[in-house]
Design a protein around this nucleic acid. Structure first.
Lengths: 216, 216, 216, 216
DNA sequence: AATGAATGAGTTTTCATTCAT
DNA sequence: TATGAATGAAAACTCATTCAT
């Protein structure tokens, strides 16, 4: 009367994660359902019990990826310290993620391409925006707090969104170049250098001004 | 006396370029040898007279792409005007290339992924470096000339290479995000904004004026 | 004391009838056990509690069909009126069955083919004979009564069986053509026309009248 | 410069005919492309060089069947003798075709079902009409000539079309019943019996009338 | 040198059937 | 008894590659 009890959601996620790993390693088109089934330790038909098509599975894998990125990023968002340090910590974490696992970039590219080439997918899912979203939000928050506390110029708050978009784009771009031209780019150094320039432009001029306001 | 050889190379290139177009439009895996042969107006078997495999053809197509990018970029390198204007012109051209033909990014991603996933290819070919090389070189040249002429701070020359690497990375990154999240990013505005910040840090302070003010 | 058995048979029949409906709608090969289970409101595994295989279920469905046809035909067999009118009523009913629900023919063809192609099935089941049997029997009865009452020639009784076989064959044939060439055949008119010819040959010459005229 | 020379049309037809045989034997759905390829002595892929899909192949096979039926029927259309004899010859030939190769009916049913269930096919092809067409046309011609020569009543010409439609339907119907209920129906006898009745109704009354007209 | 006919390995997907619960 | 999760065989179809001409 009670059939085999299985946590379908859990299994679905497990298969999606298995698929995600293979996708990252070999690419979407190069990863067959057979290979996924083997890697997941289930029969080919079982995949179709949980996903109606390879595309469906792909979407689920991408979603799982977004989720895992979010989970990784979340602790970084509430770093303590002064705003510049928090900014460095945030980007430093992203950078070391790239350094430790270059597949992240491959996967990002794969998924981007997949969504680029498939209009239907793109509408279902604003993937890239979702992945970058939390990081961008954290950057914006840091900028605003920095401006409020007087560490950053007021422009840091005003332009927070544009700065954040560009910063995330830069990190992805340099990460991509790093992965694609192995050995050519000193990723950490380049990111640091970029941040130096950015912070130089953002930091409020020597406290003189602040003190002056305080003195009278 | 060896007209056949010229013929062969020409035809090889023609086929590679045809393939490149189809790759850009449909992606690598989605482009069949049949389709390439049809588009190139030759027989399927003929492809194999010129390329030993699809991979060989793919490499040739990628090489052709690098060549065509170089050819497109070259006229931009010798822009005239003051250094900041030349920098804006150079990046502006790249930006509008992205805006006018988003497939450039797709192709870039496709080829990057291809090389990322295939170690043998990566060693044969330092693709990204080659593609970005000319732009990077031009940026470096502008920075050095700007420093020399006093428009830019001396650091512009000293850090020219790092600045160039980061700038190219940023442009590719923001271009990628732009293509992948259609409608979300105002590409030209973001690039402009980035340049504003960069130039603010690079421009030499109006020393004359400052000194003058100090003297009295 | 054996209520379970009644229950089982009832459920078996219910599943078979559900299957029959799907078979009629989509064909045998296009109807999956899953679909049948869903439509019947039972689990997939339950089907196999009642039928050892899809073939077994198919046979049961065909049997159910025979039964339902018999049930539909039975009231028509005892029509009242003079024999020609009863004949017209009987065929008219069959004809309108075709007209109202062309799937009847599809189902008939499907089942016929199934049995044609499967020798084992054919031996187990003399399907067509069973389905057509009641109609044929009714026709024979009408013919015999008509001959007895003098409405029909004596040959009507003598040839009753052959006439009935041919008549049923004709109706099925014209029905099949009607369904298969939509819009080409005016089914009712053609059946009427056929009956006109048949009755013309069967009706006894107005002997009474003739004799009466002769007597005086 | 000249590739392998093959008569594509010939090979296409050969494959279609091979397929037709398998379809007749096992049914459409039960016949796989693999089986067809094996039976045709070619590789699986080769089938797709000649037909873009199984459906395409099916249509071609059906067309081939129509063609072969027409070729078989054509010599029968110009039989000599008096109209009743010609009618008997025509139906006799069809009947023996059923008797000699019951698969004809199976094939007819298969193809009918296929077209019945597939709206797209039905529109592409008025199959049944085309198959029956020549026979129907021949019947009509015989009826008209018979009426003209005075062998048949004038009604034979007037109702020629309706008679032909019904006659073909009857033959298909009795053939179907014959095949589906093996051993139950004496096909030839039933067809003869039907023709007896039909001719009894069609034949012009004793030449008296015709002679009378001639005498004056 | 050029071609396209031929092919089979491999892809995604379906589904009757089994079986642990 | 009832269930649905699991499965692998088999289906239609694709395509890089080979090879006879």
């Amino acid at each position: 009367m009670t059939p085999k009890i299985v946590d379908r959601d859990e299994k679905r996620l497990a298969i999606a994660l298995t698929a995600l790993g293979l996708f990252a390693e070999h690419g979407f088109e190069a990863t067959s359902i057979s290979a996924i089934a083997d890697a997941a330790g289930v029969g080919k038909g079982t995949i179709y019990e949980y996903f109606s098509s390879k595309e469906e599975l792909t979407v689920a894998a991408a979603a799982a990826w977004v989720g895992s990125v979010e989970r990784q990023v979340r602790p970084l968002l509430s770093t303590s310290g002064d705003p510049p340090a928090r900014l460095r910590a945030l980007l430093g974490a992203t950078t070391s993620a790239f350094l430790e696992n270059p597949r992240v970039i491959t996967l990002f590219l794969e998924i981007s391409l997949l969504f680029l080439k498939n209009d239907a997918l793109r509408e279902r899912f604003h993937l890239i925006r979702e992945v970058s979203g939390p990081v961008r939000a954290a950057i914006i928050e840091i900028l605003r707090e920095g401006a409020e506390s007087g560490t950053f110029k007021p422009e840091a708050a005003r332009d927070a969104e544009r700065i954040a978009i560009n910063l995330v784009a830069f990190v992805d771009g340099i990460g991509m170049h790093h992965v694609v031209t192995p050995g050519f780019i000193d990723l950490a150094a380049q990111v640091d250098f970029h941040l130096d320039g950015l912070l130089a432009g953002l930091l409020a001029p020597p406290q003189a001004a602040a003190e002056e306001r305080m003195i009278p």
